[in-house]
Amino acid sequence: MKKQKNKLAGLQKRKAIAGYIFIAPFIIGFLVFMVKPFFQSLYMSFCNVEVSAGSFNPVWQGIDNYVRAFTIDPEFTRLLVEEISRMVVDSLAIMVFSFFVALILNQKFKGRALVRAIFFLPVILSSGVILGLETDNSLMAQIQVAIEDTTSGISITGAVEDILRTAGVGVRAFETVFEIIDNIYNIAISSGIQIIIFLSGLQTISSSMYEAADIEGCTKWESLWKITFPMISSMFLVNWIYTVVDFCMRSDNEVIDKITTVMTQQINYGFSSAMTWIYFVIVMAFVGISSLIISKGVYYYD
């Protein structure tokens, strides 16, 4: 009896070793390319890094870089506030949009494969450098102005916006909504992955649940709130984190742009590390707090 137990332990040990061998590349990569640069960049953010031909030597100078980022640098605080507020608004809009689209795409209708293919296209088309170039496409803006001139401002959304503005009810709230509507293209092209994640969640819900609800006299609207929402609430968490993080890494992010410029053109490693860390800490805090709030509402079926 005892011998057999030993043998089992041996098998477990062998499996543990095999597991470590399998994940070894990750451990090595993580230690060499993540942990070391991570702490090094934290250290550098407190230093004035002098780069000479063959070496670099950081000189400790305390929190000077951080003070400089917030008080002396003319752009940084403004860019930071702008980017973060844009991130919050856009991420919310992306969540709503992708959930809505996933709901529609989960239904059965003709040409669904085609529509899915089109909605997923932006994952390819808006990745990497293309997105950054797309944002400052002034020809499109010119054409738009030309069209608006020729149609002398006959635009439904414009008219509605005007009416709502003159009505003057909660103007600030409307402005945000207008911004999102004007921004709908950006939101549509950055929600490809989120749609897929929601779709995969929706497909795991068994249809018997809906049938049961239907027989009990549940309307579609009720079953959306009572079945769909709780069942894919964990997807909301995943998607939210993905969206926010993805937003930080986009190439049209102005804070990142500024950091890269300072690093590669002014060769000021210390200052750029400090700015990166400020941005990183704020974003992480935001992700942490918001996902804590969301995870309170997540319902796990099993």
């Binding site: 640069p37 991570f38 960049s41 930080c248 890494m249 990142i256 950091i259 490693y269 590390s273 990166t276």
Partner: peptide, 9 residues
């Protein structure tokens, strides 16, 4: 972690 954080180092 955004790769930008560690890009400097």
């Amino acid at each position: 972690i955004p790769p930008q954080t560690i890009s400097t180092s």
